[in-house]
Design a protein around this nucleic acid. Sequence first.
DNA 1: TTTGCAACAAACCATACGGTCTTTTTAATG
DNA 2: CATTAAAAAGACCGTATGGTTTGTTGCAAA
Lengths: 202, 202
Amino acid sequence: MEKNLKRMATMQRMQSVGLAIFYKRGYYDTSVDDVLKELSLSKGAFYYHFKSKEEFFISIVQNIIFQKVYSELIAPIEGLEDPTFILDKCFDSALETTEHNDLDNGFVLSNFITEFNGKNPAIIKLLNEILRVWEVNLITCLQKGKTDGYINRHVDSEAVASYLMSSYIGVRLLMVEGNAKLLRYKFMQQLRSYFKTIIVKR
Amino acid sequence: MEKNLKRMATMQRMQSVGLAIFYKRGYYDTSVDDVLKELSLSKGAFYYHFKSKEEFFISIVQNIIFQKVYSELIAPIEGLEDPTFILDKCFDSALETTEHNDLDNGFVLSNFITEFNGKNPAIIKLLNEILRVWEVNLITCLQKGKTDGYINRHVDSEAVASYLMSSYIGVRLLMVEGNAKLLRYKFMQQLRSYFKTIIVKR
DNA sequence: TTTGCAACAAACCATACGGTCTTTTTAATG
DNA sequence: CATTAAAAAGACCGTATGGTTTGTTGCAAA
């Protein structure tokens, strides 16, 4: 009975280490042996747990990446307060973790979307689905803000959501250049300025 | 004397085709043979003109990518008019070419920055330099807008430049999902809204 | 016409990759 | 302790890659 638990533990360890290396060096430039070396495991162990490298990566997307994006960008904006206030806090803290975590430069989703685009439609579809969840949640958040009197009724929620996603994805990429702290400061400053264009004026 | 011309022509053809394939499938997932097959050339031809695959790519960055970014995003904003007007036109037309060109989804620079990040510092440095040129030009454009009475004097030009770059890079990535036309419309709409926060109010 | 070199062809090499297969170790159960 | 199946080891295979080398073609200058 405990076997199943160990199995799960090993698989999760593999996925966790796998993501770190794939994220750092890219999927196609990381060999299965690279991952196994970091894990001190053998090919036998890998192909006992996973059918292929691709299936391994797909399980990482479903089990880790989705949760990561959800906990960092989606869950935090499901409150009832002023959307611009919630979004401000959410983006700021998301960028803060980026700032302090060297392994977290760039943006997991956009990095892999870039890498798999045109090569692996199945994985692209998976990754885009995560983006969609984020988008839908942003739109819902903004719409609620309208009915609650925070957001101007004439605002195009879908357009704002796209614009927010764009700027976030972009700034995460610019952060790979270094100087994440300054960039975060600039970004948040302009984001707040932009928020003024969508709130209800008092 | 004409030999040199032919040499240049062949090299340029190689670079042009090389960029197209690297852009589509990624650098590491494209073999030299893949490029040569498209060119109907042999290994001998390739290694006669270029020392290595890496040097080949570097020449592409310097000779093609830089020019592409320059003509699309940098040169157009060197006018004397209202910066928000110039930038509006520049971004809109840049996104329009994206919309109509299937080979042009994503953003050349950000795609490759993502791919080479953490793997090839030399190439990363090259690509970042291009970003810097873009950034400096944006800042200059905005500063001139201040002295010309278009942009509010209290605006942080560097922050605005970063924010503009971020949102553009991000929206280009979102466009790989398809529906570039709608996304462009939404983006430009919000960009114009954002511009209202930095102009001089009359 | 002959020479010489630029331009290319293509066989070849070492290495590294994803994946398979057989064998060994580990650990729960009787 | 013996049994058994899960878990892991690691040698092995076919293929593809970046790069080298040797050979061939074509054209300009003598």
